[in-house]
Write a protein that binds this DNA or RNA. Structure first.
Lengths: 344, 344
DNA sequence: CTGAAAGCGCTTACAG
DNA sequence: CTGAAAGCGCTTACAG
């Protein structure tokens, strides 16, 4: 056993503990704990001696040990699709601000749209005993979370609902937003409208497609299945889908792109063409107004999504035990030119 | 004391421990530990009994307790300016991938360009005993990290160097990049070139200004101080600066914008004008090629910045103890039209 | 192959 | 006002 009273000096890679501080200050462990935590009932003189020892040794309380004893870890986990996707920047930032306001740290990870990776991350966070989780789900079966939730880890899903699990969710109204965007194109005279969306296993992709079909049906317009394309959002797939719709037997005169990445690729494809094609995209993006024409979008508020989910989470952590709740946030149509082009 | 042999059932908010599993399986604590950690030397039959108990109780090892005993936390902290800034997305993602490859979790936070907030975050991460830190510094005095580094927390700075501290740094060559961008404008005939940059306390802002001055001096061109503006990068300040340079007594014919946010605002200001003004921006951004004209940029590789910093960090964690090192990554000029406009 | 004891660095509950 | 003992949930070192 190290005789800490004889080696109060800092050794590389070894941190002083409260025990070391106590020895150096000539007080008991509990007194050091009191000073470190600002608890009352310590003589000013004793406080000073402890402070001096802390300073001399370069002591910093080990919060991991504290946490083990106290139960709560003051940390929350955020799992989303991709840390590098600009859509999640404002969402992450909003969650971080809420965590900060509650004195919690943020553990962060990307699922890369892989259900297995989502599960690994989430369970690793649970093993660290985060107090709560905010998850943009990649998978469609979240029963693996049942024991964790039962054990007290508050969980809120955001952007997409969980699968086979009853939990709090915060969503954007994808259905209504897509319907409004497509109806906008119809109002500007379009009758043949293409829909390019994300993988059909993603909830928002299905909801937006449902909105598209509702708008078309509402206007009495038939949908040629050649106008609908769901799949990965990599540029090659999206461009191929757009080309097929634009150059097919019954070419579309307008496109509805169902998320930010699809929209950007659609803009690239359209910019290389002479015939003007109308475009409305789901999700706003920077510089959309500076393109020519400006890109009309159905905007959703990613920061509000994060803020609402974090509010919900911290209310749960404060003891709210009402039944799980679905919150749906509205979208907003922003006309900028591309969605107001007439059919050619 | 709770008699865990009599209450093996899961209670809300209380998790079973190895002790509970041991009691239920009728084995010792150490045997449970062996099974959980996949250590050899346990009879298949015993393994099965322990597994059954784990399953029945919904046990998941508490990694916080494990960490306290083992020393390393398998987590790293990343502090940057703003989680919502698209520039940091690829950097964060690259750091996350490296952490994942090394089995570490990522704790993430924004300094909001506030030195005090940077310090609080970094020290909170240290109190949790992260194994290492990657920091985009906001402050210019990092001596507060000395005891932490001495105690063994590996630290790598990225994008900007630390202040008053000798540590590993990974930078982009701001000086050379800015000089090349401004020289490019000069090569296209410009003699009056404006520079709009970030706050002068930010290292990259100063380096880019130095590059601008070097390019001008290298071509024998005088710099009117009315052409140089450093300050916050909010749109109002940047637009005012651009207007003053464009409408002043000796109007500039070209602008060099020293980061992505400045460039975007400059593009907005220029798009409202009839007289064409050349523009080169530091940092690439999405859709720069689709604007009219396309925006010529000095691109830096944010993902590579993150990857390099993480490599360095994990090499330190693996025991590398060579002296701190400065790594400088090159930039790349991407001509797209705006930087090739002649003087008007 | 298996387990009891000690300890990681703190806090809690209690006693002086 | 102060501190010794027990314990948070694990792992380590050691003994059978």
């Amino acid at each position: 056993m190290a005789d800490s009273t004889r080696t109060p000096e800092r050794r590389y890679g070894t941190r002083p503990t409260m025990k070391d501080v106590a020895a150096r200050a000539g007080v008991g462990l509990k007194t050091v704990s009191r000073v470190v935590n600002g608890e009352p009932g310590v003589t000013p003189d004793t406080v000073q001696r402890v402070r001096n020892a802390i300073e001399a040794l370069g002591f910093r309380r080990n919060d991991s040990a504290r946490i083990l004893r106290k139960g709560r870890t003051a940390s929350i986990g955020l799992v989303l699709e991709d840390l590098a996707d600009p859509f999640y920047g404002p969402l992450s930032r909003a969650v971080e601000e809420a965590a900060r306001a509650h004195g919690a740290l943020l553990i962060h990870g990307s699922s890369a749209e892989d259900p297995e990776r989502e599960r690994e991350l989430v369970l690793a966070f649970c093993a660290r005993r985060v107090d709560g989780l905010i998850v943009v789900p990649a998978g469609d079966d979240h029963r693996y979370l049942e024991p964790e939730i039962a054990a007290g880890i508050a969980t809120v899903f955001v952007d997409r609902p969980p699968g086979l699990l009853d939990a709090d969710v915060v969503l954007t109204d994808s259905y209504a937003g897509a319907r409004e965007g497509v109806a906008h194109l119809i109002a500007h005279g379009h009758r043949r409208i293409g829909f390019i969306g994300d993988l059909p296993r993603i909830h928002t992709a299905r909801e937006r497609l449902r909105g598209y079909r509702a708008a078309m049906a509402g206007a009495g317009l038939p949908v040629d299945e050649a106008w609908v394309s769901l799949g990965p959002t990599d540029p090659a797939r999206v461009r191929a889908a757009a080309r097929a719709m634009l150059d097919g037997a019954r070419p579309v005169t307008a496109l509805f792109s169902a998320n930010n990445r699809v929209t950007v690729t659609a803009v690239r494809e359209l910019s290389g063409r002479t015939r003007p094609v109308a475009l409305v995209g789901f999700d706003d993006f920077e510089l959309a107004d500076l393109l020519d024409p400006g890109v009309t979008v159905i905007a959703q508020d990613a920061a509000q999504l994060g803020r609402t989910a974090a509010d919900r989470l911290f209310r749960r952590l404060d003891g709210a035990d009402d039944p799980p709740e679905v919150t749906t946030l509205p979208t907003r149509l922003i006309p900028r030119g591309s969605g107001e082009l007439p059919p050619s």
